[in-house]
Amino acid sequence: MTSISRDLTDPRRAAKVDDIEAGLKEPLFENLAIPEELGPVTVRIDDHKIKRYAFTQDDYHPWHLESSPFGGRRIAHASLLGNDLVQLFTTVYAASQVVGLHTEEQLWFDSPAYLGEEVTLHGAYTKAYERRGQGYVVMEAKATGEDGRSILRHRGVEIFRTRPADVAGRGSAAPKKRITGEVAPGSPSFDAAAPAFGQVLPTLTKAFSTEQAAVFSRIGEYVRNIHNDLDIARAGGLRAPIVQGQQQYGLLAEALTRAFGTALFNGGRLRSKFLNTVEVHEPVEAAGVVTGVDEDHVDLEVWVRRADGALSAAGWAEMPLPDPNQSQRK
């Protein structure tokens, strides 16, 4: 009997296959084919996948583990499928040979994914270019539900192969409009019932452990990289493994879920640029501020700040007006 895996690759293959990455291309910039199809892959949103993500993000929101306003059904975290989409290229390229840096992530949240649902992931490399001696590649991808509805749409930018210590923090991905992460003293707290300019989201503070980063970065599929392996991290000039940009992105998505509730899952958009690396166990804070309110949506600047004060991620969100009865600040 065969079954659909909850992962991009089925780790059970290791019991029968000597080289689980055999036949995949070496992840070199010169090996790119533009455009290049990635997937499709079908994954199942099972109980383990949701609980595993909850562990990696330390996010045990009741909508994911108990019931949600979406017909009482459990739903996946808003960005649970985000890393599956980011990693979709490893269906073509050998994952354990990748030493790249994610520089930009954008997701459009069209609808929730439900517990037990089979979701199809499909994407393509659409553009490649060189800048400051580094090769960048752009991926566009989507996650589609069993009924054909769009769940997530993704656009990401990555340095395809590099030495992380040589480029981390040099500002190559700095946003054109500088986001400082500073808010005026006495700024009002976010009010879902009456969003207004200058309101500040509640701050989320976390420190992703070695175990959380390793699980998030696919150690369960026997993938080895700078996020889950000390030797590989040090070979890349790092002192310790670093947290994936996508894992930090999940922290921003959690902050938006708790502030905007169901609105995020029905038309929210979050774009983030990754500016500095974050080591495992390093405390970070996610926050945001309302920069505009229209008749049907709210604009925000959002960021993740390291303990040393530097921003590790900065971005922008556009959110439908929230239902004050369904925002969750637990």
Rank of each mutant, 00 (worst) to 15 (best):
I4D: 12
D7F: 15
P11M: 02
R13G: 14
D18F: 13
D18Q: 14
D18G: 12
A22L: 12
G23W: 04
L24W: 04
P27Y: 00
L28G: 11
P35D: 01
V41D: 05
V41L: 09
T42W: 03
R44Q: 12
R44A: 10
D46P: 15
H48A: 14
F55M: 01
T56K: 01
Q57N: 06
D58C: 07
D59L: 09
Y60T: 07
H61V: 15
H61F: 15
H61I: 15
P62N: 02
P62D: 03
W63Q: 11
W63K: 10
S67I: 08
S67P: 15
G71D: 12
R74E: 08
I75A: 02
S79R: 00
L80Y: 09
G82I: 03
L85V: 13
L85N: 10
F89R: 05
S96T: 07
S96L: 05
G100A: 08
G100S: 13
T103R: 11
S111D: 15
P112I: 02
E118V: 03
E118P: 04
V119H: 08
V119L: 14
T120Y: 02
L121E: 01
Y125C: 09
Y125S: 05
E130P: 11
E130D: 10
R132Q: 13
G135S: 10
A141V: 00
A141D: 00
E146L: 14
E146F: 11
D147V: 08
S150L: 14
I151G: 09
I151F: 05
L152G: 01
I159Q: 00
S172M: 14
A173S: 15
P175M: 10
R178F: 09
E182G: 07
D191M: 10
Q199C: 04
T203L: 12
T203M: 12
Q212N: 07
V215W: 02
I219S: 05
I219C: 06
Y222P: 04
N228P: 03
I232K: 10
I232A: 06
R234P: 11
R234S: 07
G237H: 13
G237S: 13
G237M: 14
A240I: 06
P241S: 03
I242C: 05
V243A: 02
Q246Y: 08
Q246M: 12
Q248H: 05
Y249N: 01
G250D: 09
E254W: 11
A255D: 07
T257N: 11
R258G: 02
A259T: 02
A259M: 03
G261R: 00
L264C: 07
G268W: 04
G268D: 08
L270T: 04
K273P: 11
L275E: 01
L275S: 01
N276E: 09
T277R: 03
V278M: 08
E279S: 12
H281L: 09
E285Q: 06
V290A: 02
E295F: 09
H297S: 14
V298Q: 00
V298A: 00
L300N: 03
V302W: 00
V304D: 00
D308H: 12
S312E: 03
G315E: 00
G315M: 01
A317T: 04
L321Y: 04
L321D: 03
D323K: 09
P324L: 07
Q328K: 10
K330W: 13
K330N: 11
